[in-house]
Simulated scan of single mutants.
Amino acid sequence: MQDIHKNIEESQVTISELMLPSHANFGGKIHGGYILSLMDQIAFACASKHSRNYCVTASVDTVDFLQPIEVGELVLMRASVNYVGRTSMVVGIRVDTENIHTGEKKHCNSSYFTMVAKTDEGESVAVPGLILDSKNEIRRFIKSAKRVELKKNRKSLFRDADFKAEDYLEELKQYNVIVPYRSRD
């Protein structure tokens, strides 16, 4: 792919949907799994719009359910590409609701989906870069870049082959656990 950069607005996607009784869980609130499914769809749309390729979900990071969503509320989801790597993108999603009778609005959920662009043959493909036009876009990019970096460090820190439980026994005392495990040197 040639050296192309896009403004974040070029890839943003917004969807809205009225929440129906069929979307509710046993507690009468909208099922979190249904919301996650909608979030995955909007992340796909946003990433595909940015990359102009089919995209797959590589990971879902930090899903924060902040407020319950009620049957009859209008859900509004906004998705933006916050970060791009070589073939991957972090799509930030904000979920708000509006009570269509009272007009009351609330922020219900935020999440970050890592999406990877693919060719028709299933190979990862380079994605366009970003043009960061504001302090907010710079903040979102840097926050996402730091999350990507932390994830890589966490993976290397806790690799099965290198992990030594003995190194963490003292640290475990601060948690609500019982550790009958003893080193078997």
Rank of each mutant, 00 (worst) to 15 (best):
L66Y: 12
A117R: 05
I4P: 05
Y112G: 02
R159V: 13
E170F: 10
M89W: 12
Q67F: 14
D162T: 09
D96L: 09
H50N: 02
V81N: 06
D96N: 10
K6L: 13
N136S: 15
G92W: 00
V179H: 12
R52G: 08
V91Y: 00
T119H: 04
Q12Y: 08
V63E: 03
L66D: 12
R78K: 15
E171T: 14
E10F: 09
D96V: 05
V13Y: 03
V90F: 14
S110V: 04
K173I: 09
Y112H: 08
V125I: 08
I178G: 07
S51K: 03
G129H: 03
G32R: 01
I93C: 04
K173F: 10
H101A: 15
I42A: 01
E137D: 06
L157Y: 10
Y34K: 15
E98L: 07
I69E: 02
E104H: 11
D96T: 08
E149H: 10
N176K: 13
K146D: 11
R78I: 07
E166L: 05
T102Y: 07
I138L: 11
M19H: 03
Y83F: 14
M39D: 02
S80N: 11
E123H: 12
N109H: 15
E73L: 02
E123L: 11
P180A: 05
I42Q: 00
V90G: 11
M77P: 03
D133T: 08
E104A: 13
L132N: 02
S16C: 11
A117Y: 06
D167C: 07
